[in-house]
Nucleic acid binder design. Structure first.
Lengths: 334, 334
DNA sequence: AATAGCTGTGGGATCGTTCCCATACCACGA
DNA sequence: TCGTGGTATGGGAACGATCCCACAGCTATT
């Protein structure tokens, strides 16, 4: 059974006002009244109705998280999964519950869903279209973007500093002595992939590497299968072209491609080095373990929630654009 | 801004009752009234307050999902991530939103949280203690368990048929000609790991393999690191003992152990075959791709939501225990 | 002409809380 | 003795929807 505060009050011999004061913990109540109410609460295992509370408080203590992504996997995506884990942990710490939704149609509907449920704030993850942001903007709902792309100066967003990461990768590989570079890059309409490639390219340029020593293959998707397919397709060009290193704009592409290399008995890193980007869990587990650029997803998730909490409390937010600098994890594949 | 139905009604020149009828779509309304209300709704982008709706309907259209797990990762766990993806998709299809929570303290608090928010139903995932189930049971809240263990005949639960899977693995490996078997098994207090090992052991027994040809090493955790550590620790015993195959009770242990074998130049599968359990995404991506026992996590997630929906609608549920049979995926490691 | 049965409408109660406000008691100092 | 201020209490409005019910108009049947 489920009880309401009126029943609790009458069983404790007080008015609902007094019961409310005891249970919510603000307002006066005599020690005797308090004790009686708490006893009834304990005995009946009374759970206050958060829906009714939300109604009057005009706050649900729920935040909405929407992950926009065309293809599966979404939650089980190695990077977004980590991000969601961090968000859940941080949200819990601040007393929020999380309404999670995935959206593969990139529509406005998922945002409307959250709006109707009156979440206190909204975190939008990954590739979302401009119209979704514009839609959400119309309501005075605190929201922010993680790992998406926008040129809108109003939108608060958290992104990894992909350009810097790409440049760091270039410098690191150049420092190892590599001179001819092969790149498999994910979809360029996706901000991260674009900037990682751009950073890598410019990094090489600054190091004096001529454009002719850089081969770039674009991939329509950024998963294992495409990485493997493209490596297989360009295998001769890679080996025959005296390229000594493969850089990819995420780990999935790198692992897919590296598998093809290993299958064809190319020794990694002796004959060909491989470097990815993201530091997904399996990068370290692979044989050989993948050298990569680490994005601190955990901190991004925590910061996203902390920032959203500031927005919800109408506190000042220091900067709209929050970049997370990336670091190189040297492992066995280079 | 956010409006309420009274404002919509007065702008449309009707009573809130009429507006409600138009918006919710049940009850009479003249074509003219309907048109005027819908126009105002459209123009003001009115979003009905789901909190208020939930209040009167005594239904939130939210379901709660709690994942119990002591260690990180939780959502980014390769198996649970897939499960959650499936649950989200199925829930969306039935008009539910999902409140997701992770619980590392295995306490009753996370369930209380869901109870307070008045979710329509609850899905409990993984290792949960008996007291949590007993606690939830006290409320007339529809709930079910996925991938947990219980001896309580009342509890509706969905599990993979781990014993059958273990036996299938034994039969398959025996059929390949293997005669001496090495096993790394996860924590035996976890139902899955226990049954997988039991099934494997009994399967071998039925095939006439003497117990002396089966070596079992128990792992305190079921992750990559432990798989690698234990393989390294028992490397001499494994190689020197003429074992030709390693079976583990999940893929993480297998991949961790396989990495050590590859590092020590053991050729897989020629010198030693490796077989896991679960079919996580990276099992297929590894070089060599891991042969494993596939658990249909996607179907489990969908079925869990469908079943919960039946419970919520007080429809009859056919059986308390729902087992999902597993199938062997033969890849490169055997 | 009376009655029944639709369509259409709006008022008010309701859901379970919180919070404002009126009231009451008591102690204390002017 | 009278205010004043702190403690304690309960009644009622409010939050924003739905839904029951009363009532009104219209058409069709007897």
């Amino acid at each position: 059974m489920t009880y309401n505060i009126k029943e609790i009050a009458s069983l404790a011999g007080v008015s609902k006002s007094t019961a409310s004061r005891v249970i919510s913990g603000n307002g006066y109540a005599s020690p005797e009244a308090r004790a009686r109410v708490l006893e009834v609460v304990e005995q009946l295992q009374y759970k206050p109705n958060a829906v009714a509370r939300a109604m009057v408080a005009k706050r649900t203590n729920n935040i909405g998280v929407i992950v926009f992504r065309e293809q599966q996997p979404i939650v089980s995506h190695p990077l977004y999964g980590k991000l969601i884990d961090a968000i859940l942990e941080a949200a819990e710490g601040l007393g929020y519950s999380v309404l999670l939704k995935t959206d593969r149609e990139m529509s406005v509907r998922s945002a409307d869903h959250m709006l109707e449920r009156r979440v206190d704030g909204l975190i939008l993850i990954s590739r979302l279209r401009k119209n979704v942001v514009d839609h959400v903007k119309k309501y005075n709902l605190p929201y922010l973007m993680v790992n998406g792309s926008t040129d809108d100066p109003d939108v608060i967003h958290l992104v990894s500093n992909d350009e810097e990461g790409g440049a760091k990768a270039a410098a690191y590989l150049h420092g190892l002595g590599h001179r001819r570079f092969f790149v498999i890059a994910g979809p360029q309409e996706h901000r991260s992939h674009h900037l990682r490639l751009e950073g890598f390219r410019q990094g090489l340029q600054r190091l004096g590497v001529p454009a002719s020593d850089l081969a770039i293959v674009l991939s329509p998707e950024s998963n294992l299968e495409q990485g493997a397919r493209l490596m297989a397709e360009h295998f001769e060009a890679f080996i025959g072209g005296d390229y000594t290193v493969l850089f990819t704009t995420n780990d999935m592409l790198a692992l897919g491609a590296m598998k093809v290399l290993l299958q064809r008995s190319v020794r990694v890193p002796e004959q060909a080095a491989v470097m990815g980007f993201d530091d997904i869990d399996f990068a370290a587990a692979y044989a050989p373990a993948l050298t990569t650029v680490k994005v601190d997803t955990n901190r991004m998730g925590h910061d996203a929630v902390a920032l959203l909490d500031r927005l919800i409390h109408q506190e000042e937010v220091l900067s709209k654009k929050n970049e997370f600098s990336s670091e190189i994890l040297i492992r066995e594949s280079t």
